[in-house]
Nucleic acid binder design. Sequence first.
DNA 1: CCGATGGTTCGTCGTGGAACGAACTATCAT
DNA 2: ATGATAGTTCGTTCCACGACGAACCATCGG
Lengths: 227, 227
Amino acid sequence: MKDGPNISGIAALIGDRARSEILTALLGGQALTATELAGVADVTKQTASVHLARLADAQLVSMEKQGRHRYFRLADEDVAQLLESLLGVAYRTGALRLRSSPRDPDLRKARVCYDHLAGDLGVLAFDAFRKRRWIAHDETGLTLSRTGAEFCREMGIDVDSARKGRRPMCRVCLDWSARRHHLAGQVGVQLLERCYQLGWAKRRRGSRIVDFTPRGEREFRQLFGRS
Amino acid sequence: MKDGPNISGIAALIGDRARSEILTALLGGQALTATELAGVADVTKQTASVHLARLADAQLVSMEKQGRHRYFRLADEDVAQLLESLLGVAYRTGALRLRSSPRDPDLRKARVCYDHLAGDLGVLAFDAFRKRRWIAHDETGLTLSRTGAEFCREMGIDVDSARKGRRPMCRVCLDWSARRHHLAGQVGVQLLERCYQLGWAKRRRGSRIVDFTPRGEREFRQLFGRS
DNA sequence: CCGATGGTTCGTCGTGGAACGAACTATCAT
DNA sequence: ATGATAGTTCGTTCCACGACGAACCATCGG
């Protein structure tokens, strides 16, 4: 017993209402300032400042100074996955918010998961990638197959420059609402980016929800839907 | 903002030293009694009892009465994955125990992850499964390929009865020490089971460590090692 | 029936830590 | 320079919650 790393510290850090609001907000992927985060957590600036210092100290978030602003974001994708994992368990065990938001259905349909697409539509796309063998295994994990790369190019994704990054091309991410996997990694990021560029979808202000236009959703479903 | 389930409750539950010890102990996969868990958490029976009640209430653990004993285990694999996820982040951010155990290397080499094999050897096996195309995708997720099923039969795993269960055959699980995936799901469980049966390995008492015999490790590496 | 052991409930105590007001530093605009 | 805004530090208050002792119920072995 008493083997391995000590998880209670990290969990306790997340286990505070204000800090969990902050982290959940940062799951949206954008960097936010200390004051903005104080707003979402509904605490004063001083309090938020202390919380953020502790989160940064534990390397759950990273901070970037920009003039008199301090921008915070999640430290990396592992932290995002941990939070999604927590969301999943919380969702299943019924630990919903007291006044569960009417936006919940929209959230389950399509939302940002750190920097890629999650929700029903994200799962739909991932299933298509899998079924059509657009993702393959290599020695280091998942990657794009040749036909997958072809598809991405047709979508207008710059595959070659994406390959250059240190980040893996494909990665799976467990979807808390659908309890299925969706696509993360470079390809996941770029795919969402293209949806924005094509005018298919837009981030809803101050939320993780991704609103698809009727036309955008039709095209998306046609692209990835079961044939 | 304020979208989705509320994670702070669950996280706070895990974020207590005693409760995190309890949960980590249950990651070993075996059901343990309340008194045993009080022992590993180093608290009195009363205290453990309240903790366990709260964990059960939140559906993180499940309880089974057996005579005057109460056996506790993790509620399901999702909870186990959440804990592994936490272990991973805690490990990377250096939140190691104050007196880090000398058994750590053994733990990283081979350990039980809920009910399947993790650690370097677990990753080694998974890589082999992947490289030799013993796992394939189907519409619901990962599954055994035909050659994979063949291999399993040679290993002495009863593939057909394993398929009958509700549980998926193959599932990936992120390994916190190796930061790679290893094999979970029915096949993962059965594989570990066979290692025990073949006398290749044994659980170390009161720990998650799996001790391979020299011969067992040699055979295992020969089976899955890079050729 | 008995004692012994496993587990829970209750009441009390003590402490860690979250919150805020106030005062402070740093950067911007003019 | 001045004020305005972003963020931090300090001191104080306050309460939630974890811990234990004691007393209780439940089940075993005889």
